[in-house]
């Protein structure tokens, strides 16, 4: 078990929590989607997402916070997490539909995964009231993240 010391833990610097509880997420009404061959082929909104917005969502601690676990080509952010694989090059490994399903409900691929489902609103235990029955992100935000992830060639 490797113990690396925190590079910047300067005296008295108080670091933020990995996940904030302040965000009120997304939608109550889910868009239905079809999983086929380990992928969701169709856009949840029927439209392509906005990659620039997806990049912002990946950084935002109250939204995607993908950086908590993944190294991504986002050099202006000092801290990238290590719990998941590097996403640099992921669009060469997976197609758009696979990436969409991976973000919507990663347990489809791995029951034991630590990665949260970003478009799921049931089947959880003791969810805080303000997040109950809600998804982490909206369908449009999922599409923005799919569009951004597809740029990671």
């Amino acid at each position: 078990m490797g113990v690396r010391s925190l590079a910047v833990g300067a005296l008295g610097v108080v670091l933020g929590l990995a996940f904030s509880t302040n965000a009120i997420a997304a939608e109550k009404k889910m868009v239905n989607y079809v999983v086929k061959n380990g992928a969701i082929a169709k856009s949840l909104t029927g439209k392509p997402g906005n990659a620039a917005n997806g990049r912002k969502l990946a950084i935002n601690r109250k939204k995607g916070n993908c950086l908590a676990c993944h190294k991504m080509p986002i050099p202006e952010q000092a801290f990238h997490g290590e719990m998941g694989p590097e996403l640099i090059g992921v669009a060469g490994r997976l197609n758009e539909g696979q990436i969409r399903l991976r973000i919507v409900d990663p347990k489809f691929f791995n029951r034991d995964t630590i990665m949260p489902a970003f478009y799921k609103n049931t089947g959880f235990t003791r969810v805080l009231k303000k997040f109950k029955g809600k998804t982490m992100l909206s369908a449009a935000q999922i599409e923005d993240l799919v569009a951004y992830t597809m740029t990671l060639k």
């Binding site: 950086l67 990238h80 719990m83 630590i114």
Partner: peptide, 16 residues
Amino acid sequence: KHCHEDGAGMMIRANM
């Protein structure tokens, strides 16, 4: 266990 067994020693953004 996800954070403190599987994740021990890893960075979760700025937190070890």
